[in-house]
Structures are given as C-alpha cells and as structure tokens.
Amino acid sequence: MTEYLLILLSAVFVNNIVMVKILGLCPFMGVSKKLEAAIGMGAATTFVLTLASGSSYLINHYLLGPELSYLTTLSFIVVIAGIVQFTEMVVQKTSPVLYQVLGIYLPLITTNCAVLGIPLLNVQAKHNFMESIFFGMGGALGFTLVMVLFAGMRERMEGADVPAIFKGSAIAMITAGLMSLSFMGFSGLIK
C-alpha cells in the first residue's frame, strides 16, 4: 500500500505532470481563467485519465502484448478519444453550465498530451495494473491541483496592474514558470 501511496504522492507533487514534466499545458493555460472552470476541467481530466490509465494497461497487457507494441500509441489515442467523447456527453447532460464554460477544451482533452503521456509513461515504467491506476490518478490529481491553484492566482491577477504587454497569457505563462520553479523544491523528496 505504501508503494501505491508513494506513486500517488510522487505523481501529484514531485513529478507533477504540468509543473515538472511540462505536459498538458494547453488546458492548463486555456481553462484556468476561472476557478469553477478549472475545477470542472480537473474533475473531467481526472475521470478520463484514471479510466484511460486502467484501460490502456489492459489493452497493452492483454490485447497488444510485445508483438503488437507498435500499435500502442494508436490504440491509446483511440481509447482516450472514446472516453473523452463519453465524458463530454455526460458533462453536457449533467452540467450544461460547466459544458459551456469548458467549451472547446472538453473535447480537446483527447489531444491533451498529459492524457496520452501518462498511459505511455505507465508502459515505459512497466507499472502493473494498480500502479498504472494510481499513477494515472496521481497525475490527474496533480493536474487538477496545479490547475485550481493557478486559476486562483489568475483570478486574483485580474485586478493587478500588470503592464499592458504582459496582460493575459504572457503573465500567465510567467506565473506558470514561477510555479514550476517552486515545484522544483520538491525534487529529491521521493525518488
């Protein structure tokens, strides 16, 4: 159990998918203008990622095996696309407001490199099924965490006297950079 917990914590803090691995920047920048959107996006991504990590493990392990490994990326993309479609329908039905707020970024979870990256990293790290799930969930939680924190900062920055040329995405990128800098403090905590 400890080892699963370590995988989880490591994925959330030490090897944060956005701050340390610099993956998934597109929704990170795109859907972090408002806190509620960020929370929604985080929840959707967590759902997709956890499901994707599990099913991609099953596909990779039972369906593809070593001889069909060249199909890994392709089949993962298909599975993720399917899960995202499913999520989109669920969100549209259950929370039209959230659906509106997430806008284009919801279907774009498909092309979120974090979502494809984590199953591939799972394969690379030779994680077993549970490890894959925990790694996927940790990655997604880490994504949600930084995204929500980032959204909080961006909401506060709306009132700041940021120089005109740095307004909007520019200062957001700088903030993301400084956040990443801060997350380096965790380096070495869990090997």
Binding site: V148, L149, G152, M153, R156, M179, S182, M184, G185, G188
Partner: peptide, 21 residues
Amino acid sequence: FGGFPDGTAFATLLMNICVPL
C-alpha cells in the same frame, strides 16, 4: 527528505501559490 539543504524559500513560494485559494 528533499534535495535542498533548506526549504524555507521553496516552502514560501509553494504556499504563495495557494494564497488566493
């Protein structure tokens, strides 16, 4: 447990991130 001898600076920055929330 970490990779740096002192953690005050990083702790400050990491908690700065959390301040708005």
